[in-house]
């Protein structure tokens, strides 16, 4: 069959190319194409210019954030009498202003760390539930419900955490310090009547970052090759053994990067912490005592009452936060992108 057709089609092709080469067609084509071509290129060039310009604007904004923060931070750091990186004081008026972010960085890292310890296991559980346990028909809806948690504004989290949650957690604070008080971080100096502590903030941050971690992890679990899962089940694995041997190893980079995205969020969360935490400038590792502060919450609380130098100092601390989140997010993205290629080759 094919051999009988080939000469014919080759014939056709020749005829086609012959007709295209005919001077008349060439002329018509050329005459048509020339103005058309410039027209097309003008519109296209404008459009390409616009869209590329938008992309470049975005890069300029990112660069602008870094540049402006650095410039204003350097202004303020010139007037600093303390050590910006190792001090925990925050005095920005008077004759000898001295400020440092050590305590703030400590509080930020501790509260975000508590959030991670709580949120990551729960989020992985939620992602597993939605991808592998929930009935297919309702799984998507349940996913939306968890996503709704991400839609709750942080100021509402703050209000809820302050008025509703923190009084409820007072008992847990006492219990932890009574029974686990020999561990330094659970040691409690004050027999306080308030639970507006770093621990409570960590729990609220955990609730806030849970949906993002769960969403990203869910996507990764959905990418697990079906064949791996079915092979495990066919070999007699229970559902949990299938998840342990096929899903979790595949999803591990995804879980790591999702956690880092969540960590970035937790580090930068402002209003909820500012409202809930009963803050102090000194660094404290005792998470059950009121006190400590985070970079972002400190900015929100101090900004209105600060003088120009104080605002510059806050910008400098914001720069530290920016660099911190940039590192965490950048690392997460690198892991995700590597994983993307990996799964693409596998699919």
């Amino acid at each position: 069959m094919s051999t009988s057709i080939t000469p014919e089609s080759r014939d056709n092709a020749q005829r086609d190319s012959g007709s295209r080469r005919s001077p008349k067609a060439d002329q018509a084509h050329g005459a048509d194409a020339k103005p058309n071509k410039t027209q097309v290129r003008l519109g296209d060039r404008v459009f390409l210019g616009l869209s590329r310009g938008a992309g470049i604007t975005l890069l300029v904004i990112m660069a602008g954030i870094a540049v402006f923060l650095v410039v204003k931070a350097l202004d303020a750091l010139g007037d600093n009498n303390g050590n910006f990186l190792t001090d925990s004081t925050w005095v920005t008026d008077g004759s000898k202003p001295a400020f440092g972010v050590a305590g703030l960085v400590g509080g930020t890292v501790i509260s975000a760390g508590i959030a991670m310890l709580i949120a990551v296991p729960v989020a992985v559980g939620v992602a597993l539930f939605i991808t592998h346990y929930a009935p297919r028909r309702v799984a998507q809806t349940l996913g939306y419900i968890v996503d709704l948690l991400a839609a709750v504004p942080s100021v509402v989290f703050g209000l809820w955490g302050l008025v509703f949650l923190s009084p409820k957690l007072l008992g847990l604070h006492t219990w932890l310090s009574d029974y686990l008080g020999w561990i330094p971080i659970f040691d409690k100096d004050e027999t306080g009547t308030t639970a507006r502590t770093l621990f409570t903030c960590g729990i609220i941050l955990a609730i806030m970052v849970l949906p993002i971690i769960a969403a990203v992890t869910r996507e990764v679990f959905l990418q697990v090759p079906r064949a791996h899962e079915e092979a495990a089940l066919a070999l007699g694995a229970t559902r949990w053994e299938m998840i342990r041997t096929a899903v979790l190893p595949f999803g591990k980079p995804g879980i790591i990067s999702a956690s880092m995205l969540g960590l970035g969020r937790a580090l930068g969360e402002t209003i909820a912490v500012a409202m809930v935490l009963s803050s102090s400038q000194e660094f404290t590792y005792k998470i059950l005592d009121p006190g400590g502060n985070t970079i972002a919450a400190n900015i929100a609380n101090q900004f209105a009452e600060s003088n120009d130098l104080g605002r510059g100092a806050l910008i400098a601390s914001g720069l530290v936060l920016f660099v911190l989140t940039l590192l965490v997010n950048g690392a997460a993205r690198v892991v995700i992108n590597r994983h993307k290629e990996f799964s693409g080759a596998n699919a």
């Binding site: 470049i56 923060l69 204003k72 930068g268 900015i299 910008i315 936060l321 940039l326 997010n329 997460a332």
Partner: peptide
Amino acid sequence: ITFFVDVMTGVPSIVAGLFVYAF
């Protein structure tokens, strides 16, 4: 651009506020 869009997702809102304040 793709990379920085991703990174921009993680810019804390207070940092965006500080940038606009400075700029």
